[in-house]
Design a protein around this nucleic acid. Structure first.
Lengths: 152, 152
DNA sequence: TTATACAGGACTAAAATGGTACCCATTAAC
DNA sequence: GTTAATGGGTACCATTTTAGTCCTGTATAA
């Protein structure tokens, strides 16, 4: 499936919610209510997002969370990395030179290139795009297919 | 991490191995030896690939596996789908209209677009590319960033 | 000083994943 | 026709990952 984890999904939804009201501080409980997800889980997600530097938190009365930087400067890749770690399709496309099977594999290099392409794509999608209720226009069909994959 | 499962990784390696010698039939045991992975696991992977229609199998003495169609007509998306099911980043980008949270989500549409972009990318990478020991040239940096993500 | 709200970590339950084993079906070779 | 090689299918178990919860501590505004 090449699927995002559920927490990552939550993170995106919560981030989008915050992004739609960037001025105010959002308490974890309010956010959980707004997106209809269990409070503790949302809270956990928020903590991870803070740790990754995507959100800033304020303790105490009237505290809460807000974006650490403008939504247009937070990417889908950032959000995914905050919850799941860096975007990488295979073990070896992450930590280089760690794979015992490198000799017999013969695919690693190319997977890494594909991985990079996906990462680049995810870096080009910002939170501002995700939060926008009018769908982003992704004229991908043509441009992506036009990427030359010819070897050499 | 947005990672492929290990079995999918194996599948790609095994497929590439077969693609490099398309004429002969490959016994499961030989393939397992070649790629240095446990026999039963490789065997399991091969069965899935057959079921997905990417490989053809021949039973009996001198039997084995071979590609169901030319390597240039088998895509990375095919291989991933064979093991993990269709490429989709979120639950809802797969089965439409199934998500209870659609009302409060507000992100679904855009995730689906991103998902589609990734799928398209994976469909543009063929087994022939993966099996090629000389790395495929993926000049993604510019083209992908040039995809306009402006809304409307 | 107190109520509010985040921080951090430990813990548990559930699900997915990976790996193995077993027995059956088919087929080529003799 | 018998035999040995080889894939087909299923069931099972161990491990890991994921998700979710809870508890205790700390900061802060009123």
């Amino acid at each position: 499936m090449l699927k995002l984890s559920r927490l990552t999904d939550y993170a995106a939804v919560v981030m989008a919610q915050i992004a739609r009201h960037p001025q105010v501080s959002h308490a974890a409980a309010d956010l959980a209510d707004a997106v209809q997800l269990p409070h503790p889980t949302v809270s956990k997600t928020l903590k991870m997002l803070v740790k990754a530097g995507l959100l800033e938190s304020q303790r105490g009365v009237q505290g809460g969370y807000r974006l650490a930087r403008p939504a247009s400067h937070i990417t889908a890749a950032d959000i995914i990395a905050a919850i799941e770690g860096p975007v990488a399709m295979t073990e070896c496309s992450q930590a280089e030179g760690e794979c015992d099977l490198a000799a017999t594999c013969g695919v690693a290099d190319n997977w890494q290139r594909v991985s990079l392409a996906i990462r680049t794509l995810l870096e080009s999608v910002t939170l501002a795009h995700l939060a926008d209720t009018t769908p982003i226009k992704l004229p991908v069909q043509l441009p992506i297919q036009s990427i030359s994959l010819a070897s050499a």
